[in-house]
Design a protein around this nucleic acid. Structure first.
Lengths: 93, 93
DNA sequence: ATAAATCGGTTTATAATATAAACCAAATAT
DNA sequence: ATATTTGGTTTATATTATAAACCGATTTAT
């Protein structure tokens, strides 16, 4: 059986990646709402995904408020696809 | 997004359940080989699945050697199916 | 017969993880 | 002006996963 990439085998990180697979870009607030997570938890998990090179995180401004925009990277996309593929060994189909 | 049952969202426990979904019964040694896990880790995870009522664990003998046989329960089967269903929200298809 | 290695596990210690709580600086509302 | 909210980050804690150490019974080798 294939390994399940531990970076993706985490509910919140997987949810984030799942959103980012379908949406060109998403900011912190949107991700927090979509994944129904706390800001602290989300912040930590975004760091991990970013450190792994699975997403890019860009801090900027929207008017005067800070705005953190995330995007999936090509490497992240590949990793997500590999993870899903490995999962099929476990759950069938 | 649905919750991912934390009892099943663990590589080894998921692998065990995956095997048991397709095989009427399986003993400890077979599960250890099939999942490529250490005996200690497997023992702990079997306990958790058993405590949750997802599998039954029966200790007996095969000749003179002890033999631990596991089976998935109806509740375990349902939980596995619900988990797979929830996962689809994350990974598509 | 006895020592030593193996088998089938369990218990326990440790490292890694996930998560929320506490915090912070800037902006907005009162 | 001060209180509240916004958009986060840092830190502390609880849970988890995992391997290491162990155990009793059984083979195997000497």
């Amino acid at each position: 059986m294939k390994e399940l990439d531990p970076l993706l085998h985490s509910q919140l990180r997987l949810a984030v990646m799942s959103v980012l697979m379908n949406v060109e870009e998403a900011d912190f607030v949107y991700l927090r709402e979509k994944t129904e997570s706390t800001a602290g938890n989300l912040s930590v998990q975004l760091d991990k995904l970013s450190a792994a090179g699975y997403i890019s995180v860009e801090k900027g401004f929207a008017g005067k408020k800070t705005r953190t925009v995330c995007r999936i990277t090509p490497g992240g996309r590949k990793a997500f696809e590999a993870y899903v593929d490995a999962l099929r060994d476990y759950i069938g189909r």
